[in-house]
């Protein structure tokens, strides 16, 4: 696998989503502590914590009262639980934020990208260990592009994309494959290999990335399918085309997490699902974060589930991140666009 070593990382490849040629321009080094700078004002988690606390309580109560009427009790309890987890993670991260930003697992610094037209301009954000960052925004604003940049399926024109402290935009193709193995990706349409059974799909990353024996693989696949609330014996031998949309998505999650990657990326995990399945998938993402401490970046336009799982939300509009902060900060914002975006909420 030494191919490309001499060609350099930027050789046009058919299988990359597109080939871009980053300029050699020096990057503007972002200050490590400034996690999320939006128009100069820092809205990192350390900001306005007490106000935040109050609003959260208020917001929670209001939400409980107006609860949409279906699974009120359960959802409310879960949401409280989710908020508590988020708080705990935030508290834990506080010292790290003030000091060196060592816990940054994923960081984008002043990333710009253009094809025929500009897609992203000067986008920066940081995901620390155990965080769930949800990138929201209208359709066609380049949300999925961010995930492709993190996976190095795309290379930015300017700026840096760092995974675990390493700039991946300069890596050779072979090294990029290795970095990708640190991440699990859940695609919008699940992207299961339709010529393989469910078992083979979930086992795929294990076969590719590990030396596990057949028995170990079997155990691991069953374990992961159970984690996503599927009955292994019923679906192991089925083909993806025989599954429902929600089941496919869950198999997709099982496959993404099969090799226990420390980073999970989700592209529209809840789009096209009914409310109940949306709830299940949202709970799964939260469960992954809670039980395994994975760092996640979720791209979504489903506001409801976003607010349940996000430790932080980044709003993408006009090719830039126009807001980023906690869900509570977002609901408390006076900004007109944000209010419009949240709609009735």
């Amino acid at each position: 696998m030494t191919r490309h070593a001499e060609d350099g990382p930027r050789t046009a490849r058919l299988t990359d989503t597109a080939a871009t040629v980053p300029s050699a321009a020096a990057h503007v080094a972002a200050s490590p502590a400034a996690a999320l700078e939006v128009d100069g004002r820092t809205t990192g988690p350390e900001a306005s914590d007490r106000r935040d606390e109050d609003r959260r309580e208020g917001g929670r109560r209001a939400e409980d009262d107006t609860g949409a009427g279906e699974d009120d009790e359960l959802t409310a309890r879960e949401e409280r639980q989710g908020a508590r987890v988020r708080e705990a993670i935030r508290d834990e991260l506080e010292p790290a934020v003030q000091g060196e930003d060592r816990s940054a697992i994923i960081s984008l610094r002043n990333v710009s990208l253009a094809f025929d037209r500009p897609i992203l301009q000067d986008v920066s954000f940081v995901a620390r260990k155990g965080e769930t960052i949800v990138v929201v925004g209208e359709s066609g604003t380049g949300k999925s592009t961010i995930l492709k940049l993190i996976l190095r399926l795309l290379v930015p024109d300017t700026g840096q994309v760092c995974i675990e402290g390493r700039d991946i935009s300069r890596l050779s193709f072979a090294d990029a494959l290795k970095v990708r193995q640190r991440m699990g990706m859940v695609f919008q349409g699940a992207a299961l290999f339709d010529s393989m059974s469910v078992f083979e799909n979930v086992a795929y990353p294990l076969r590719e990335q590990t030396d596990m024996s057949e028995e170990e693989i079997d155990t691991r696949v069953r374990e992961k399918l159970k984690f996503v609330d599927l009955e292994p014996d019923q679906i192991l031998d089925q083909l993806p085309s025989q599954l429902s949309g929600g089941m496919r998505k869950r198999v997709g999650i099982a496959r993404g997490m099969a090799a226990d990657p420390p980073i999970m990326l989700y592209d529209e995990p809840t789009s096209g699902l009914d409310p109940l399945t949306t709830g299940t998938v949202t709970r799964l993402i939260m469960k992954l974060q809670r039980e395994l401490g994975v760092t996640s970046v979720v791209v979504s336009h489903d506001i409801r589930s976003t607010f349940r799982m996000a430790t932080r939300v980044a709003l993408l509009a006009e090719r830039r991140i126009v807001f980023s902060g906690t869900p509570e900060e977002m609901t408390g914002s006076d900004d007109e666009y944000i209010r419009d975006f949240l709609g009735g909420l």
Partner: peptide, 11 residues
């Protein structure tokens, strides 16, 4: 259907 991307993603 992004299966090629999925292959890439899994190394």
């Amino acid at each position: 259907t992004e299966q090629i991307d999925a292959l890439n993603t899994m190394g």
